[in-house]
Amino acid sequence: MILQPDVAVPDGATYLPATLDHVRWGRLPCAADAPVLKVDSGSDVVVDTISHEGILEDQGRDPRAFFASHGVEGDAVLDDAIALAASDHPRAWGVDGPHVVTGPIEVAGAEAGDLLAIHVLETTPRVPYGVVSNRHAKGALPGEYPLEGDVFSVFCEVGERDGRAVGRLPVGPGSDRSVSFDLHPFLGTMGVAVAGSERPHSVPPGPFGGNIDVNLLTAGSTLYLPVQVPGALAYVGDPHFAQGDGEVALTAMEASLRVRIGLEVIPREDAVAAFGELVGPMAETAEFLVPTGLDPDLDVAMQHCVRAAIALLQARFDMDPRHAYAYLSAATDFRISQVVDVVKGVHATIRKSDFA
């Protein structure tokens, strides 16, 4: 099914479509932005998100034509993506970022110093295809790729293998052979508004979250973010169907999702007891606690992540920091979240079962 706006929305759901008045394109919300929705802590919201792939200027800013060139019928292209690409939505090509975010959502009672928990409850593909792009000498090999031109976009179909949804990426231009990989839909961008009146660029992540691109944030996971402004003003976007750690080419399999998220305020006292003095994003899955580290220098991002992991183990399990450092070295994987968003990311995967 193609999940066009307002199609197949569950009865009684609080629904936030990605209409022109509900999205930001290339910039993230700040304290000066008015919320497009207000909810109580503990509420669930169904949110439509739009992928930037297929709507950008270097792809013609015409998703109908772009996807038609890959054999997609017109009624399988999302109406809200078409409307955004055709609009005069304020955005400067080459200055602002590419990402589309839906929001912001005000959560009643959230104050600076609290944590906002964004629980990812469901992630549903809106279309059966996606795009992976390398562009403008960006990515892990900026002096080498794209091999020619400013952008190289690979169209990927969604298929099935052994009863599981997979992405199918062709092995070369015009080839009828493809490589298949499992899909793990997640939101690359989840965040809260920053203080002040200046909207952050959509590419570099920060203490507010944003474009952190942690691929563990699939359904069943939670992202914890330090609230910066009253009401938190949460937003989500940059939907992916799949991404490898590192996201080396610049984007991964980018494609639009409908998500159901839960929004919960964790008061400062409870937050400190559970996580310590959290200064940046932290995730949790059924299996792992996932502290993060962010910095333009990957070595420094790694150091920030290790410090965050030690502080978490001190707060959550009353570990001596020297013993926590030793445990992390013996038992925890530190993964590169992404190296393509100016501010690089590292995340640790601390097994919760080790502390049962």
Rank of each mutant, 00 (worst) to 15 (best):
A140E: 09
P170D: 05
G143I: 03
P125V: 06
K138N: 14
G149D: 15
H136V: 03
Y129C: 04
F155A: 12
P173R: 01
V127R: 02
G159F: 02
A108V: 12
V171Q: 12
V100S: 01
G113C: 10
P146K: 05
N134V: 14
T102Q: 00
H89W: 15
D88P: 01
I118V: 15
E160R: 12
P90G: 09
R168M: 12
G109W: 08
P173M: 01
A86M: 09
V151D: 07
R135E: 08
V95N: 05
T123I: 07
A140Q: 15
P170K: 07
T102F: 00
A85C: 05
E148M: 08
E157T: 14
A112S: 04
R164E: 11
L116K: 03
L78W: 13
G139M: 10
V120G: 02
L141Y: 11
V131A: 11
V166R: 00
E106A: 10
G149E: 15
D114T: 08
L78Y: 13
A110V: 06
L121S: 10
L115C: 08
H136T: 09
V107I: 14
H99L: 15
V154P: 01
C156D: 02
L78P: 07
V107T: 05
H99D: 09
L169R: 14
Y145T: 12
G149I: 03
T124N: 09
A92W: 01
G149T: 06
A108P: 04
A85Q: 02
F152R: 13
G167V: 09
T123G: 11
S87D: 07
V132Y: 10
V127T: 12
A92S: 14
G172L: 05
V107Q: 02
P104C: 00
V171M: 04
A85I: 11
A165Y: 09
P98A: 09
A165V: 06
G163V: 10
F152H: 15
A112L: 02
W93N: 10
G113I: 08
D114S: 10
I82N: 10
L169K: 04
A137M: 03
A92N: 13
E148W: 05
Y145H: 01
C156S: 14
P98K: 10
T124L: 11
E144Y: 12
A92I: 15
A112F: 02
W93F: 07
R91F: 14
P173K: 05
V151P: 00
R91S: 13
W93S: 15
L121Y: 07
C156T: 13
L169M: 05
W93G: 07
S153C: 08
P90I: 08
T102C: 00
E106G: 06
P128I: 02
W93Y: 13
G130S: 05
L84V: 02
A81F: 04
G109T: 03
I105V: 15
V95H: 14
L84S: 00
V166G: 04
G167C: 06
V120C: 03
